[in-house]
């Protein structure tokens, strides 16, 4: 691949026709989607499993993790929503990322299934390990090679592992991409993630109020705290990037940078939130 201007696109199970999708569709897919788990619907969780789920939830509430919030579904202990705010000093900073989790009936002997919900309706690939179809690629979830789930792990460790995917240079999360090959990929990828974080994981979230109500409360409060960061980020990147095309080193995310538009949306949201009309 010496002289190619783009590196090989990473596999994304969302889009048929992309590399890997064909062979994957022939084989039976491993189950990862909490919304498509008929195998778990047949089995009732054991009482031990329920006790353990409660303890896991209790631990997250009693020993909160920075930037992580959960909202269990009130009528089903096996299902919960998690909000992970993008960590500081990463291109995800200030973003509100929503995950849906489901515990197996045999918890803790098998891992929970997790779906990433903040994908701009399946259009944005926020990370090499976060597919547009919501699949979260993480070895402890059984969706990636490496150390597997062990019953000593728990909900907190799962959430922290997911949070750690959102790091300073997510480009390197793609296996085999520990080094830049062309010299621009890390910055280019970060620019895209930063823009899409503001667009999809901030503006869309607040405008559409698409997350569970408990999580929306956290989002609104945090928005005000991040407001300064949003403004300065937009000021910093708009002159350089606006009206240029996104150049995703994996060739997946597409679009044109438009920080000016984001600025307008964020100002509007800030006004609405200040007058508590949102």
């Amino acid at each position: 691949m010496a002289s190619s201007s783009k590196v090989t696109p990473a596999v994304d199970d969302n889009t048929p026709g992309e590399i890997g999708a064909t062979s994957a569709s022939i084989k039976e897919e491993i189950k990862w989607d909490p919304f498509q788990s008929p195998d778990w619907d047949l089995e009732k969780p054991t009482s031990d499993a329920i006790v353990r789920m409660k303890r896991d939830l209790h631990l997250v509430f009693s020993d909160p993790l920075p930037g992580i919030f959960i909202a269990p579904e009130s009528d089903d202990i096996t299902r919960l929503h998690a909000l992970i705010t993008g960590p500081f000093d990463t291109p995800y900073e200030g973003g509100f990322f929503h995950f849906m989790l489901r515990f197996p009936p045999s918890y803790p002997f098998h891992p929970p299934r997790v779906k990433f919900m903040t994908t701009g309706s399946g259009t944005v690939r926020f990370n090499p390990n976060l597919y547009r179809n919501g699949k979260v690629c993480l070895s402890i979830l059984g969706t990636w090679p490496g150390p597997q789930w062990a019953p000593a792990q728990n909900l907190s460790s799962v959430l922290m592992s997911i949070q750690s995917l959102m790091n300073e240079k997510p480009f390197h999360n793609e296996p085999g991409f520990h080094k830049e090959r062309l010299g621009w990929e890390v910055k280019s990828y970060n620019d895209i993630i930063r823009h899409e974080t503001l667009r999809v994981a901030v503006c869309d979230v607040l405008e559409r109020k698409s997350y569970p109500i408990e999580l929306m409360e956290v989002v609104k409060l945090s928005f005000m705290q991040f407001y300064e960061y949003y403004s300065s980020t937009i000021k910093k990147y708009a002159p350089e990037l606006d009206d240029t095309s996104m150049n995703d080193p994996f060739g997946i995310n597409k679009g044109t940078f438009n920080f000016k538009k984001l600025s307008q949306r964020i100002e509007k949201l800030q006004l609405a939130l200040s007058s508590s009309s949102l």
């Binding site: 696109p9 690629c137 296996p175």
Partner: peptide, 17 residues
């Protein structure tokens, strides 16, 4: 390389299944 690793990931999934 990306394809290769993804293939490995998929084989791993196959093995798990």
């Amino acid at each position: 390389m990306a394809d290769f690793m993804s293939e490995v990931a998929r084989l791993d999934e196959e093995t798990l299944k």
